[in-house]
Amino acid sequence: MLSQPDFAALLITLRLAATTTLILLLLGTPLAWWLATTRSRLRSAIEAVIALPLVLPPTVLGFYLLLAFSPDGPIGATTAALGLPSMAFSFWGLVLGSAIYSLPFVVQPLQNSFASLGRMQLEVAATLGARPLDRFVSVALPLSKMGYLTAAVLGFAHTLGEFGVVLMIGGNIPGETQVLSIAIYDHVEALEYNQAHWLAAGLLLCSFLVLLMIYSANRRFHLMKTT
């Protein structure tokens, strides 16, 4: 079964994924809303930046983050000036890295969801006296439930499986920054296939269940809409 360090890795992974997802949902909402509604020329550029983690090797992202975290880097200098501990090899460093790494997985479903609302429902709400924030909360949000579910699940699941970024900026400190994917790698390196199996199969099953959940919810949602 799970050893003490494996269990710690599991907890850190879940905490990391949950924290990252929450932060991304909060920050992703205004960003996705802007992308779905703006006519600005900047939109394409911003969309491309957000999509970068989809194509970049995670090590590239991790490498630049590591440089930024160093005492001379912009983030490292800021944290030092504020008297905060360095982000490198820390849990919050991992959160930042994961947030960037999983950003497209949260922003894109939200953006699609907002875009598919169309403008009519919001226009109707405006004519009925609802101000912009009120329109968002009373109309856009409830109609984007599926988008939020998809974004949350994808963001969470994608953070669970992260490896390259974590390895670059978090290192492999058991109980602090060691996550499941790295624990699996360690077990394989040490030829502990049995323990690697427990973690790997667990992650596989977990990811499958999570995805099954969105697809079946999605299907039910579409059936609801069409009947």
Partner: peptide, 15 residues
Amino acid sequence: EQRRVGVVFQVPSLF
């Protein structure tokens, strides 16, 4: 939202 204008659109637009 400050005009107080009621609109009935061509296609039904209920929430």
